[in-house]
Amino acid sequence: MSFEAKRCGVQFSPPSIVLIYQQKETKDVRKRIIPVRNFSKYSDCSMAAEGLKNHPRHKDYLEGVSQSQLEKLHIILRDHMQGLSLEHSLASFRLDPDEDLNQLDDDKLARKKGKMDELFEKNRKHKDDPDFVYDLEMDFTKTTQEKCSWDEESDDGF
């Protein structure tokens, strides 16, 4: 039996991960509620996500859900346990291109990197991919012409 994950979210009480999936053979769409056990406001979200991803009873259903998404959902649950609002959690994942990430602590930075990982994983070429080239080269010197606006306003030694 194989499943295709459609959507994945959280439910605060009792704390659970909610998965909407389709059974590939029958095309039935179902909801699976996975209670998150032994998880507190002090828990390590990355470890909890890994545990769930490899859980014998759930792992077949969660195959299409990345570990970083599961980690994100655990962060939302943990934030809620710490009394933080859902809006706060979601804002912490959002990427603001002007924000100076050098100032963030580990946890906050991990949230931003988690968000960046979505695109990274999407564009990533793996060593097992048939078209993988280790030494991939592209020459952009012919295509670069436009001046970059980032170089203007040069009051800072640029």
Partner: peptide, 17 residues
Amino acid sequence: IDADLKVTQRSFNFGKK
């Protein structure tokens, strides 16, 4: 640059400078 290949048409001057 995978995020937006168009950036490769721009010339960033810091290195040149």
